[in-house]
Design a binder for these strands. Sequence first.
DNA 1: GTGGTCTAGACCACT
DNA 2: GTGGTCTAGACCACA
Lengths: 133, 133, 133, 133
Amino acid sequence: MFQIDLKSRDSIYEQVIENVKRLVFTGILKTDAKLPSVRELSRTLTVNPNTVQKAYRELERQGVIYTVAGRGCFVADSQGQEPDRERVTAMFEDMKRLIEELLFMGMDRDGIRNEVERILESCEEREEGGDPA
Amino acid sequence: MFQIDLKSRDSIYEQVIENVKRLVFTGILKTDAKLPSVRELSRTLTVNPNTVQKAYRELERQGVIYTVAGRGCFVADSQGQEPDRERVTAMFEDMKRLIEELLFMGMDRDGIRNEVERILESCEEREEGGDPA
Amino acid sequence: MFQIDLKSRDSIYEQVIENVKRLVFTGILKTDAKLPSVRELSRTLTVNPNTVQKAYRELERQGVIYTVAGRGCFVADSQGQEPDRERVTAMFEDMKRLIEELLFMGMDRDGIRNEVERILESCEEREEGGDPA
Amino acid sequence: MFQIDLKSRDSIYEQVIENVKRLVFTGILKTDAKLPSVRELSRTLTVNPNTVQKAYRELERQGVIYTVAGRGCFVADSQGQEPDRERVTAMFEDMKRLIEELLFMGMDRDGIRNEVERILESCEEREEGGDPA
DNA sequence: GTGGTCTAGACCACT
DNA sequence: GTGGTCTAGACCACA
């Protein structure tokens, strides 16, 4: 599914969160898809089950997944949620900071535009190939 | 100059770093401009001098400022540095993650393009208003 | 492991850095070997934990060690890194200064050549005696 | 004569010392040659006379120059001094550290030998071109 | 005045 | 247990 860098200075549970989010955001994990159980994932990643548990709890808190007692964790429905304007504002703030720094480093304006298009295209492909249901 | 949120989950010295970078990247602080001294800024922000110094040290490491013992800290020259491809690659990775999440949250493609343009324009204004020398 | 000269004009944390580098460069500490914890080393050397941590941080920055919060500090992999030409150039500049001064002091050219060979040989032995795996 | 980097993190007086030593060690300044006066050099470098004074005092302490009250500072005779074994030992220690690190970084043994030869040759040229008296 | 180093504590998050 | 951050002081060298 994904791998953890035990040498990274990012904590393990943060890496688990980031990886799951990535899989969900990129559409590899669709709505209501079942995630591996805490035990299974902890074995796969060779990390402590508590660490995976903590990551799943945080993902649930963020509304990325939902838990059904006794059955497991599943990908939440993205559309069912309101856009969360605070989050969007914060993300555009992050993007602004990124772009400001890129410009400061001498990056060309069109270079940035092209890169954004490139990213948008790469996402498009994934979506079109996705479940047409 | 700027303010710190002591209750934030981001550490104080990271906030100092981000704020100084912001001032430098947006051109508010020009090359060779003097930053407030460690002691002065620590008084202004009501934090410990060690914390400010830690931030300044990291900013120097990142090439944003330079330090002259006994004289103070100053804004480094952005042009004098090579682009640092690793950093640029990492920044575009961050941007990719941001865009993926925005799309997942239902944000429109053109909405993202417009926001990027808006950011680029806001930077342009600052630059043109810059040093008329 | 090693000792610190509290009376030296070199700062304590610099001495820690030099000593650790020495152990790593000479192969006494192998890749992924665990370094003493910040607290442990600070007790051993009878210096403040902050001072040791400062040294460890700088060693990490230089790519000599890597840190995993909650687990400890470990020797980084030397091979995984590109040579860093700037650093090599600076080191040869240092060597040039050293040799110039040695010649000025009346040191014989062959004496210098012999000394260099002696150093290279002493390193060779260590390497060959290295991991027999 | 030479220049000072006011932005450097090395203190100014250390830079003065290093530059004068360099000129002496490389044979550009011969024995008994007169150094610029404190005032003159301080004007040339646009630094405080006290700083130059301090550098000259330290150079005298190290036996690189000697002072004649009312006449100025002059380059000391290198041959007249005993070799100072402690200093030589320390310098070879430095060289050992340098070579160990170069090897650790993957530098080739012959590459190091060649570089040493290159340095020795560059010094030879200067000497032969020097005063045949 | 400036930055650089250091001590002696403290609390936090992570494993 | 580990490293990461922070405070409240102190002393030093340099300009």
